[in-house]
Amino acid sequence: MSTGLLYALAGVLLFVLGAAGAVLLAHLMRKVLAFNVMGSGAFLVLVGLAQREDVIDPVPQAMVLTGIVVAVAATALALGLARAFHARTGRTGLTEEARRD
């Protein structure tokens, strides 16, 4: 098993963990963190799978850099909204809001 594949498998594991967390956890902060874990997993897969025979492919590196920038922006927006939500309701989770139609 090459190092690349190892990274990729770790990435898949992180992705699954993150996705489960983002769906299942109630606390908004935890959800945001879980999303970041999930994103990192995907980045790891992207870089890991692309490592072949010591030839470095620059494209995935560029992709991951772009992806990280996007993830930072998304995290910032999520935190901003979560703070606004907390300031208005004093709550840290959305669950109570779920059924209100």
Partner: peptide, 24 residues
């Protein structure tokens, strides 16, 4: 908005993972 954001982030995370696998 928060709920929308979370769905959207998880969804695009899934999409990104798909892209990673395809590229790999």
């Amino acid at each position: 908005a928060l709920r929308y954001l979370l769905v959207s982030l998880i969804a695009s995370g899934a999409y990104l993972m798909g892209v990673a696998l395809i590229y790999g």
